[in-house]
Design a protein around this nucleic acid. Structure first.
Ligand SMILES: NC(=O)c1ccc[n+]([C@@H]2O[C@H](COP(=O)([O-])OP(=O)(O)OC[C@H]3O[C@@H](n4cnc5c(N)ncnc54)[C@H](O)[C@@H]3O)[C@@H](O)[C@H]2O)c1
Ligand SMILES: NC(=O)c1ccc[n+]([C@@H]2O[C@H](COP(=O)([O-])OP(=O)(O)OC[C@H]3O[C@@H](n4cnc5c(N)ncnc54)[C@H](O)[C@@H]3O)[C@@H](O)[C@H]2O)c1
Lengths: 218, 218
DNA sequence: GGAGCCTCGTGCATCCGTTCACAAAGTCTA
DNA sequence: TAGACTTTGTGAACGGATGCACGAGGCTCC
């Protein structure tokens, strides 16, 4: 026993776990105590075999003939995703997007409290957005290190995104979510995920143009 | 000749074309007239063999021993992505996120003009955000159809996202970009892409928790 | 005109992810 | 307890994407 790293979990599976989690939360909210892979698949928008295979990477948490216990599975998935603890985040760039993110309550609620905002604009430094102080961008390494921030969100213009990433890394951040349309180069120990809206729209444009056939699922 | 659909372009390739496009725009901005797959790969953050294979799906646009003509390739990639025309978009949900998106100039500039915002809140309907009128959500099908909108962006709370998607589809929208944390069910002819920030953070949390090894690239 | 060099285009092996299909393991009824 | 039924967990086949390695084609310089 005590076999935590059961197997290496495939990247594609990791990307789906949060979706299962959300579906399980929904089920739990409806006072459903047990669910089949079929039902879970429907809620998550995938097929049932995939659900079962994905969950099997975490362990054997189902009961044959019955299904999965919602609360129990909810806990296991949360634990696997590392959501049993809070992960404080900082947002760099207090513009349009940075402010919208800070104002959005959904992060703090889900275990990702925003502990600081950073900007380079003297007019913004010192102000407060959504109850969070806007600090000078040059203080990133110090503040990040001091408050043990693990995740940094980049919402600055693209040309400075790399500089910001370097500052975050210097402070010990090991995960970056990048909204700027720029490719970041970071130490291999740092995880980077990017969200690029222009890219998404252009992908849609491609399939749009290709006529009514072969649309793309997501 | 006249062989437009050269081959079926793999989904993974389509997703990278916008990144190549951005790199090419950057090169063109620096007055670079020719580029190798090596250089392009570096800018796009992928490897050179992948660049060459991806571009080969569009046709033989390179010159052996020389590389690719930046302007020419720029045009070809744009054309393939359907960016030689504008694609008007509408944004549904004029809240935090919807407003930030509307205020962001980068869409109109790149061929995705925001022609309308929709909301259900009477206090918001009739106001103007970033020069765009906020309309009643019930008018979605009519307005979308009348102005030939092809792409809809959903920035409403999750519980109403499906309803909004149905309204968009009713108006003839064939591409949806969904920011609400909800799985949408739509006709197969409609392409859906989702951007889910909570999911992204949770994925980062997973790798964060897994210790300093095996970070995830993006 | 030929040698040497460079870079594209692509066949091929490999890897990763998806899906099928079924045995295993449990529940329920009588 | 037996037998029918349900649903999981997973081996195996398949398909798509990646990366290597090299032949083909083109340039430059002598
Ligand atoms: N707003 C959107 O809807 C949207 C959509 C798609 C992409 N994006 C991308 O997100 C990023 C931010 O967009 P935005 O609309 O919020 O832009 P914005 O101009 O409103 O905000 C950028 C902020 O970053 C600050 N900044 C500049 N240099 C900085 C530095 N070195 N350190 C810290 N802060 C710095 C600026 O002072 C400004 O407050 C951009 O890269 C943009 O391309 C935004
Ligand atoms: N703001 C963020 O940074 C952020 C981050 C992650 C995810 N999201 C997601 O994006 C969505 C929007 O977030 P937000 O922060 O802008 O929320 P918000 O509450 O600020 O805005 C939602 C808007 O949608 C409108 N609305 C409600 N029902 C509608 C309907 N049926 N038709 C049209 N409009 C309707 C509301 O009136 C409101 O103006 C949410 O699903 C949220 O989970 C937002």
């Amino acid at each position: 026993m005590a076999e935590r790293p059961r197997r290496r979990i495939p990247e594609a599976t990791v990307a789906r776990l949060p979706v299962y989690l959300r579906s399980l939360v929904e089920l739990a909210g409806d006072r459903v105590s047990t669910t089949s892979s079929e039902r879970l698949a429907e809620l998550a928008g995938v097929n049932a075999a995939k659900v079962r295979k994905d969950l099997s990477y975490l362990g054997s948490y189902g009961t044959r003939g019955v299904g999965y216990d919602v609360e129990y599975l909810l806990f296991q998935v949360s634990r696997e995703l590392g959501l049993t603890q809070d992960w404080p985040v900082v947002i760099v760039g207090a513009g349009n997007l940075g402010a919208a993110l800070a104002n959005y309550g959904g992060f703090g609620d889900r275990g990702f409290p925003v502990v600081a905002l950073f900007d380079s604009d003297p007019a913004k430094i010192g102000t407060t957005i959504a109850g969070v102080k806007v600090l000078d961008q040059r203080d990133i390494p110090r503040v990040v290190q001091a408050s043990g921030v693990a995740i940094g969100i980049i919402a600055t213009p693209a040309p400075v995104a790399q500089d910001v990433a370097d500052l975050l890394a210097a402070g010990g951040v090991r995960s970056i979510l990048n909204f700027a349309p720029a490719v970041l180069t970071v130490d291999p120990s740092v995880s980077v995920r990017k969200v690029d809206l222009a890219v998404e729209l252009q992908i849609l444009s491609f399939y749009q143009q290709r006529g009514p056939n072969q649309a793309v699922g997501s």
